[in-house]
Amino acid sequence: MSVLVFIDQAEGHIKKSSFEAASYGAKTAELSGTFAEAIVIGQMKDDLSELGKYGIKKVHAISNEALNNFDSKVYTTLIQQLVESTNANTVIFSNNTSGKSIAPRLSIRMKAGLVSGAVALPDITSGFIIKKSVFSGKAFANIKIHTEKKIITLNPNAFNIIKGNGVAEIVEFTTTLPAYSIEVTETNKIVGDVPLSEADIVISGGRGLKGPENWGLVTDLAKLLGAATACSRPVADIHWRPHHEHVGQTGLAIAPNLYIAIGISGAIQHLAGVNRSKTIVVINKDPEAPFFKAADYGIVGDAFEVVPKIIESIKKMKSLS
């Protein structure tokens, strides 16, 4: 009857969103008077007993280099085997590219209702109801799962990491390797950059920056704050910035702690991708830019004058602290 959390990894390191999933899984277990375990697939470099700090009691590791390549079918088979052997009742994923690939498959195998994009703990006062983000962040839906087994994917940055002192027990889960249905022939990581979907702070630029040669403003500020960089749709469409930086309704939906939009007017489609951000700052010289209505802080002014001053001011603040 336990809760099982899928721990997603990249090159042997646990992803930040998986610490959120672990904390969420531990709290979900607590609500139903049970405990949380985790499954990690692939050869790891991180110390898995650390997951105990996030409330995980036991980690089931399948340490095999061959499993570092992702295949939703293989991963589903392995997780299903562990679910059967531990009799887990609820499985938690991060709502990222891995979670979105595995959770639907596993839902069919386990005959478990799936809620993807959860933003809060389940409400178990009458049944099992989970709040999830819908309409690209413009609303929430409360979804009831009718089945005894349940699967939840948790939106990144929607649930705070809870860190304590536990130490997780690590056990090796031995099983036969399922056959791969796809072959991963190449992986390209954008090295050194913070992945946009997991970033705490995102600095984003729009057409107001007038050209790709001016992106230094965005990247300098991002570097200073350890932030990821993003852009609006027109900027990606005219190839000033790569497509994977496009945030908005048809790009990536993000929910960082801080989103700073420079020279972006804030069309409704752009807002749909960023409106779950905790704090939104808008810098735009047009006081009528719709983005100001959705912002927490704003500066009506010329980005080319304002942003360098902000950079100087942050540098000063950092040198004082």
Binding site: S107, A139, A141, H146, N275, Y297, K309, S313
Partner: peptide
């Protein structure tokens, strides 16, 4: 069906933007 929608909520409205003078971006920081 394995799931059903119980209800919808809209996010709470934003309190409104706090504007900072472009002459004084230090205040934003």
């Amino acid at each position: 069906s394995l799931t059903s929608i119980v209800s919808f909520d809209l996010p709470p409205a934003k309190a409104g933007v706090k504007l900072v003078s472009p002459e004084n971006p230090e205040e934003l920081v």
